[in-house]
Simulated assay, not measured.
Amino acid sequence: MGAGKFVLFGSCGVLDDEKTKGKIIIPVSAVRDEGTSYHYMAPSSEITANPRSVQTLETVLTACSCPYVKGKTWTSDAIYRETLPMIEERRQEGCLAVEMECASMLAVSKYRQIPFAQFLYGADSLSSDTWEIRDLTLYGLTDAEKYMVLAFECGLAL
């Protein structure tokens, strides 16, 4: 539909509070546990982010004095399959977070050859045996505005 590049940001479930607390998460790869990405790329267990897009995010976040961590994420479109054994398995694979779109968007952007960058902020925590529901309204308007500004800066830099 004419889009030349995509910047996506949103919340995620945190799998490792120690590594992610107070930081933006930059996905460097995504475990493909959803359906959409398989329509655009050959089957594989993971898909990697474009290193140039990752570097762009790092540059923008550093310039904006925003702490971040890079790592793998788990893309799942089956929230009721986020069981304790699966969460532990993904944690052991090095996943920092679980979300619902990164693998799909990475696949579509590679298929369409369109620059794509994504960053995440931790919402719910699945870092322990008990699900910690964190209301997104706790982030407040100022955080939402901050993330939007970061997204615009990333889009301009891509």
Rank of each mutant, 00 (worst) to 15 (best):
G71R: 04
G155W: 01
L61A: 08
L61H: 10
D135P: 00
L15E: 03
Y40W: 04
R112H: 09
T56E: 01
Y111N: 10
A123E: 04
K70E: 08
C66P: 00
K21F: 03
G122A: 14
I133Y: 09
E99I: 03
G122D: 03
R112N: 09
D143M: 14
V14H: 10
F6V: 15
F9P: 00
V98F: 04
M41C: 07
A63V: 03
C95Y: 01
Q92E: 08
R91I: 02
V14Y: 09
F9E: 11
K23N: 04
A123N: 11
P85I: 09
L120V: 03
L138C: 14
T137P: 00
L141A: 14
V14T: 13
A30T: 07
W131V: 10
M148N: 09
L96I: 11
L141E: 11
A117C: 10
P115R: 15
K146V: 05
S127C: 07
M100Y: 02
K72E: 00
D129P: 01
K72Q: 06
A3I: 13
L106A: 11
D17W: 02
R32L: 06
D135F: 10
G22E: 03
I47Y: 05
T20F: 10
S127T: 08
Y38I: 03
K21Y: 01
I79W: 05
Y38N: 07
A30S: 13
Q55H: 13
P43N: 12
K21R: 12
S44L: 05
A123H: 07
A107M: 09
A107K: 08
S109Q: 09
V69A: 13
F119A: 11
Y139K: 15
R81K: 08
G155M: 04
Q113S: 15
D77S: 09
R90L: 02
N50M: 14
Y111L: 11
S109T: 05
E82Y: 01
A123M: 13
R134C: 07
P43A: 15
K21C: 11
E145P: 00
C102N: 10
Q55L: 12
K19W: 03
Y111M: 10
T56S: 15
Y139S: 14
D135Y: 12
E18N: 12
E58Y: 01
M1C: 14
Y38F: 13
K72R: 12
A3F: 11
C154H: 02
E88W: 01
G35M: 02
Y40V: 10
E82M: 01
A123G: 12
S11T: 11
D129M: 05
D16K: 08
T130H: 08
G155H: 03
D77C: 05
M86W: 00
S125E: 09
G10C: 05
K21H: 11
V54I: 10
C95W: 00
R52S: 13
